[in-house]
Amino acid sequence: MTGWEGFAFTFLNARVAAEYWPKILEGLGVTIALAALIIVSGLALGLLLAVLRTLAIRPLNWAIIFVVDLFRALPPLVLIVLIYFGLPAAGIGFSGFAATWLALTLVLMAFAEEIFWGSICAVPKGQWEAGRALGLHFLPTLRKIVLPQAIRIAIPPLTNRTIAITKGTALGSVVAVSEILGAAQSAMAFSGNPTPLMLGALAYLVLFFPVVVLGRWIETRFAWRR
């Protein structure tokens, strides 16, 4: 066997690939489900906190800032481990899937709140005043005038941040979630061959490469408007 053949036999073994690709595909499904749940709940909670912050209730704002700072400072894996290995001691058991979902939702919530809040602040004050002048109350002004503009400002940074946090679903493999990486690692252990790991990496590329390119496109597209 030449060097290349040996490499292909080890890392791109067709027989192992044929046997284990359904497992990787199942993992891909779990990753997509987990990512979708995190994105929906994280963005919704982040927007909710940012809107609550516009009410300018002091103690509430301090609480929001603290929570946001907390989940921006803690590494996601520390949160996952804390929820998965820590909370059962208090009688609250989480599955690995739920622990990963909860941890990454909190992280995305924190980052999304910062971005939404910054974007709301970036909408010129005159827009608020125009709403008042039209006889709109606080909430209709926020909902119909300020938020639509703020969300447009928020989209490029939010896209990139969301992609980065969604990639964290791979951390679920540490708490026995059989998403792509988890499935690939157990397949590698069964087969004694690293081909499933290569398939797993390929699955991540198939899933995230288009999203990263989309993020790049959104960034340049919105940059023209500045």
């Binding site: 990639k167 690692q185 790991l197 797993g200 991540y204």
Partner: peptide
């Protein structure tokens, strides 16, 4: 650059740590 932004760092780490020894 986009490839390394698309692959989760943990996947890259496992690939190098557990995959490369096979080579």
């Amino acid at each position: 650059i986009d490839i390394f932004r698309a692959i989760p760092p943990l996947v890259l780490l496992i690939l190098l740590y557990a995959g490369l020894p096979f080579a």
